[in-house]
Simulated scan of single mutants.
Amino acid sequence: MNTRFAQILSALLHPLLMPTIIFAILFYIAPESIQNLEEFNGSAKVGMMSLKMGLLLLIFLQTFVLPVFSIYALHRFGFVGDLRMETLADRRIPYLVTVAIYTFVATFFTLKLHQFPEVALIITGIAFSIGAVAVISLYWKISAHAVGANGMLGALLGIAIKYGNNDLFYPILAVIIVVGFLLSARLHLNAHTPAQIMAGSILGLSVSLSVVFLIDFL
């Protein structure tokens, strides 16, 4: 694999972008998996945008822009040496801050946008995964890319199985291929060992699948 391609792929599929990608696929390909989404989308607007687009923009701002800005601020104030966060020392504080942000986002959706409980629950699952990565990163460099990418795959796969949604077949197939390239890229860049990639994959898949199948019980 070309090193430049591996770097670009790692940047485009940053773990913090996974929530936006997951919900973009669900909102526009499998909207029936999100309770009340189609009903409210037909009658509500967010400014000039549809409800779907407004929710997706809100998720992008809360789960990507806000954490990225916070990490950049930590870097500027000297708490993070390198924005690539390749060492355990550079990862610890940003991960803890990100967990706090995602917990806030999950709480916001639970209390303020309770019409869409699946959104809140999936974000809660993502927050739990990040929390697990934060704890593990106190001692060991688990792959956050593997956690995020396989978490996305697990969520889509779980929803497709649970609801028998055939529309997700091709998106899931595409995600499997992209995840394969992404994990290969992380190995090519020597960002992680195979064990770190495997551990991240297992964590991401197990948490996301558990969350999807728990939805009806909460």
Results as ranks from 00 to 15, higher is better:
45 K>F: 08
46 V>G: 05
46 V>K: 00
49 M>D: 05
49 M>W: 02
49 M>F: 11
50 S>F: 01
51 L>Y: 04
52 K>C: 08
52 K>W: 01
53 M>K: 06
54 G>A: 12
55 L>S: 00
56 L>T: 03
56 L>R: 00
57 L>C: 12
57 L>D: 01
58 L>N: 01
58 L>Q: 03
60 F>P: 06
62 Q>P: 09
62 Q>W: 05
63 T>V: 01
64 F>S: 07
64 F>I: 03
65 V>D: 02
65 V>S: 04
66 L>Y: 08
66 L>H: 07
66 L>S: 11
69 F>K: 10
69 F>W: 08
72 Y>N: 07
72 Y>P: 07
73 A>L: 11
73 A>R: 04
74 L>S: 12
75 H>I: 08
76 R>P: 14
76 R>L: 15
77 F>Q: 10
77 F>N: 10
78 G>W: 00
78 G>K: 04
78 G>S: 08
78 G>T: 06
79 F>R: 01
79 F>M: 06
79 F>S: 10
80 V>N: 03
81 G>P: 11
82 D>G: 06
83 L>T: 07
84 R>V: 10
86 E>N: 15
86 E>W: 06
87 T>K: 01
87 T>P: 12
87 T>R: 00
88 L>I: 13
88 L>A: 09
89 A>Q: 07
90 D>K: 03
90 D>R: 00
91 R>W: 04
93 I>G: 09
94 P>D: 04
96 L>A: 15
97 V>S: 09
97 V>I: 15
98 T>E: 05
98 T>V: 14
102 Y>T: 08
103 T>A: 14
106 A>S: 14
107 T>W: 08
108 F>H: 06
109 F>E: 00
112 K>M: 13
113 L>E: 05
114 H>V: 11
115 Q>R: 12
116 F>L: 03
116 F>W: 04
117 P>H: 04
117 P>S: 07
119 V>L: 00
119 V>Y: 02
120 A>M: 07
121 L>D: 02
123 I>K: 00
124 T>E: 10
124 T>R: 04
124 T>F: 10
124 T>L: 11
126 I>H: 00
126 I>D: 03
127 A>L: 11
127 A>I: 07
128 F>H: 04
128 F>C: 14
129 S>F: 09
130 I>C: 09
130 I>A: 07
132 A>F: 13
133 V>N: 08
137 S>Y: 09
137 S>Q: 08
137 S>R: 01
138 L>V: 11
138 L>A: 14
138 L>N: 13
138 L>R: 05
138 L>E: 13
142 I>K: 12
143 S>N: 14
146 A>G: 11
146 A>E: 02
148 G>L: 08
148 G>I: 10
149 A>I: 15
151 G>S: 13
152 M>K: 08
153 L>I: 11
153 L>M: 15
154 G>V: 13
155 A>V: 15
